[in-house]
Nucleic acid binder design. Structure first.
Lengths: 241, 241
DNA sequence: TCAGGGAAAGAGCAGTGCTCTCTAAGTAGA
DNA sequence: TCTACTTAGAGAGCACTGCTCTTTCCCTGA
């Protein structure tokens, strides 16, 4: 996207100008991320500019609008979360330990969310009014669920996870799952993918519930509750003990 | 809260003045709700006032701040959602049809959310920065989950739903669940409540996922997918077919 | 009838996103 | 090396925001 912008502005890639421009863009995003932590989604362009010792209008040389800046942050956020999930999965040395991998990935997602709640809210919270996420984000957004599904795939390939009976999976849902499967993880039964996607939703729900304050005055043992949930989900999906 | 305000302003309850004041308050909330639908959480006090043919400062006679107005809307929202859930549960004539009641309640929640997405986002979306939900809301907020848990309670009392084995429910989670149980549904095993709360979280996750756009370009058969999920959850909790 | 108090208006403050114009500075080509 | 061009940034300005303060109007209870 950045190189795209450079092209439209007629800059030669690799030039010194382009490099300082890229550094500047990164610095703006970094300060914006910092403001995001305190001000939430309604961060102020002017405040970001002030923090960098420049005037607000100067930011418009780098981001066409506030929404554009948010989009860049969202994209970075999806990638950061995806990387965290992948790293979590990778911590389990025994690749055949499916449950361990599942739980490690889930906990990694939660840890990332707790560490950067504002960014998580930006990704998964209430959408900003009249803001449409560009298509670029879908690839980055699918990194985390793909990490989860890949665990199922490994288990299925190894014959440890078996295809559950297609009890009551509606036909059109199977169609959706089949399309999704072909796009991301070929050769995985739709029914298994349907259960896997449910697990992803439960993970998202659990993290959002905790982060958005719905657990306040209700559940104190947050991490234990989370771990218990994810274990139950793993069992429901068919990941052996 | 309103009567509280009236008291502090020294108004006699039941007076004419108090009545027009209450009507005015309702009208403000109604217009605010209308604006909420288009502008999301960042609705404008001035716009609301303009819509009512008055000046912005006049609104401050009724709500001390924008946050106060939002709080009132949140409270109303929780109650509206709770009422919808209860009504959904009540549509099932055969009270012994636990699965039917569970699904009806879930679908009622989803329908309410799809009908008033902005209000749902206000309740369950990313929290507004430096806004603290007052204690008043917790009672209203618990109406919906209580409706769900009551179904489990009915099933447990009837001996249709049995207490699941406490396999791997951490001790501190049991403590949380016990406290929650004593507060809302006495005589329900903690383990069952733990599973029930998971169902509530999955319901919330599914609705939020759909409403916040995470299902875009992924799942088309929204209602079928939702119904499938809630059926699976019911089974996982132990609600018989 | 009349004082007290609540409702509304209006000006004003500090802040916002965004646009426009203008200047300074760097870059490439002859 | 000089020139034509592009870019970064500054600053003013527009329309908007939440909120406060003061002033005016009018209803109400005694």
């Amino acid at each position: 996207m950045l190189s795209n912008l450079c092209d439209t502005l007629g800059m030669t890639a690799g030039g010194l100008r382009a490099r300082v421009r890229a550094e500047m863009t990164e610095e703006i995003k970094a300060t914006a991320r910092r403001h995001l932590a305190t001000d939430g989604a309604n961060l102020s362009l002017r405040a970001v500019a002030r923090d960098m010792g420049m005037v607000s209008s100067a930011l418009y040389r780098y981001f066409a609008s506030r929404d554009d800046l948010l989009t860049a942050l969202i994209l970075d956020g999806y990638n950061a979360l995806g990387a965290a999930a992948e790293a979590g999965d990778a911590t389990v040395a025994d690749r055949a330990d499916l449950r361990g991998r599942w739980l490690a990935t889930c906990h990694a997602v939660r840890t990332w969310a707790l560490g950067t709640p504002a960014e998580y809210a930006l990704l998964f919270g209430s959408p900003v009014p009249d803001y449409r996420a560009p298509q670029d984000t879908v690839a980055a957004a699918s990194r985390t669920p793909t990490t989860l599904i890949r665990i199922l795939k490994d288990g299925f390939d190894a014959g440890v996870i078996t295809e559950p009976p297609a009890d009551g999976v509606p036909a059109d849902v199977r169609t959706d799952m089949a399309r999704l499967r072909d796009r991301a993880v070929p050769d995985l039964p739709e029914v298994l993918l349907a259960r896997g996607s449910m697990g992803w939703i439960q993970l998202f729900g659990a993290v959002s519930f905790e982060l958005f304050g719905q657990l306040d005055n209700v559940v104190e043992a947050r991490e234990a509750y989370f771990g218990y949930q994810m274990g139950q989900v793993a069992t429901a999906i068919g990941i052996p003990e």
